[in-house]
Design a protein around this nucleic acid. Structure first.
Length: 212
DNA sequence: TGCCAGGCCCTCTTTAGGGCCTT
């Protein structure tokens, strides 16, 4: 049985929700094993202006978000879409902060554990030129599914990178179970980056493998 | 207009500092 994992990416007005920055777009790619089984994507109107350099970076304009659904509605839908699936993001510390901040504005909990493909790739691919998402996608010749710095394209690329990590862990460990390979990958994270949820799953899965 | 953060990792470290990564 494969775990469902929600790979998320936010586009935002800046880098710090504590300083008033808000999300402008969210995309979530739901994976099961090697397959993408569902997608969620929406621009969102948080009622704030987008700095010019952000528009230059992402292509997301004030007019685009003004025509989008209210941020609260989008986040309620996103939370319903994710459910209790564990989440993965490229530089998860960033997306986790926005996930928690935007859901908190709606009065909703954000209990999902997060794992980080930056931390994983730093451990697994020390020879990579750097660990930016676009660099790793090019380095591994993974497909670019759209414009970089748009939420859906970045979430799809992060999901593809996660698939590559899973693949490499399977080869390195000689284990045919995708679950086990993924758990090994997550264990490659530092202890502080490895949520309790995964430690529990890893322990039970390892015990099941050991018992044959 | 220009500025802002946080978590992780590495090392010339641990009583710290700097780089990376995200927008």
């Amino acid at each position: 049985m494969n775990h469902r994992i929600a790979v998320i990416d936010f586009e935002t007005t800046g880098i710090s929700p504590d300083q008033g920055d808000r999300a402008t777009e969210v995309a979530i790619v739901l994976t099961e094993g090697d397959r993408v089984v569902d997608r969620f994507h929406s621009l969102m109107n948080a009622g704030v202006r987008i700095p010019a350099f952000i528009t230059q970076l992402t292509g997301i304009t004030n007019a685009m978000v003004q025509a989008a659904p209210a941020a609260a509605q989008v986040m309620r839908d996103a939370a319903r879409f994710v459910g209790d699936a564990p989440m993965v993001a490229h530089n998860a510390a960033f997306d986790r902060r926005y996930w928690r901040a935007e859901l908190a504005r709606c009065g909703l909990p954000a209990a999902q554990p997060f794992a980080c493909t930056v931390l994983l790739s730093r451990r697994l691919y020390p020879d990579a030129p750097n660990h930016k998402l676009g660099t790793l996608v090019d380095w591994f010749d993974l497909p670019r599914t759209g414009a970089a710095h748009r939420a859906l394209a970045d979430a799809e690329m992060a999901a593809a990178l996660l698939g590559r990590i899973r693949h490499d862990l399977m080869l390195r460990h000689g284990v045919t179970s995708p679950d086990h390979a993924l758990l090994c990958a997550l264990q490659a994270c530092s202890k502080t980056a490895l949520p309790k949820f995964w430690q529990t799953r890893a322990t039970s899965r390892a015990a099941a493998l050991a018992s044959g």
